[in-house]
Amino acid sequence: MELLQEAYWDEELRERVRHSLGLDRPFIVQYGEFLGRLMQGQLGYSILSGQRSINVMLAKAWPKSIQLGMVGMFFWFVSGTILGIIAARFHNRAIDYIIVSTTVAVSTIPTFVLAPMLMIVFILRLGWIESSIGWEGIFSQKIILPMMLIGFTGTAGLVRQWRSSILETISQDYVRTARAKGLTERLIIVRHVLRNAFTPILTITAASLGGFITGSIFVEQIFNIHGFGWLVWQGIIGLDYPVLMITTLFSAAIILFMNLVVDILYGVIDPRVRVGERARR
C-alpha cells in the first residue's frame, strides 16, 4: 500500500492519508493488524471506491458468482459427461477422435478470445440471442453465453477423464460378470461402470475449480456481471490492493475448502478409500 503514494501531494496531506491508512506504523504491526482483522472477519476497506467495506462488496458480489458458477459447472458436468461417455463407447473410432480433439481445442481457447467469438457467432451472425451483456438471474437468456464460457474451460479434462476411467472400468471382471448375467448394456453402464468410474471425476472437479474462478474474472468482465470476478477486475484496473489481496486469499480458501470436501466425498462414494475405518476395526 505504501506504493500508492506516488502523487505529488504536500507533506501534511500526505502524512494525514498515511496515518488514516495506517501506513505510518512499522510493517510488522500493519501485518499483525491485518491478520487480526482477518481473524475477526473484517476484510478491510477498498481504497478506490471511497473506503467501502470489502465485506459489503463481497456480500453483494457473491450470490451472482455462485449462481453463475453453479450453472457453469452444471453445463460443464453435463456436456463433459455425455461427450465422455460417447467417446468411451466409440473409443478409437472417428467419433472419439473428433470429440477429444474438439474439446481440447475449445478448452485451449482463452475465455477472452472465445467470448467475443461466441458473441459474434450467436448474436451477430445467427441472431439467436439478442444481447448477453448484464445480469438478469439464471433464468434469462443472457446466462447462456456466460454459462457456456465458464463450462468450456474444463470440458476437455472432464471428457478425457470420463473416457479413460470408463475404459478402465469396462475391462474389470465385475463388468464381465454383469454381462454374463445378461444385464442390458444400459444397466451395465449406469449401474456398474459409471459409479465405479466416478472417483477420478471428483479429483478433476476439484482441479477444475481454479479454472472456474479465473474464468469468472474474464466472463464477468466481458458480460458486465457484477460478481466476484468483476470485483477482481475492478481491483486490477484500479490497483486496489486491499480488494486484490482479499479476493486472491478468498479464492485460495475456496479451493482448499473444496479439496477438503472432495477428500471427504471420496469416502462416501468409494468405500475402498475409507482408511480410518479399517484401522478402527
Partner: peptide
C-alpha cells in the same frame, strides 16, 4: 492459488 489470479 488459481494460476492467473496469482499472476495478476
Amino acid at each position: 492459488f488459481p494460476h492467473i489470479l496469482l499472476a495478476v
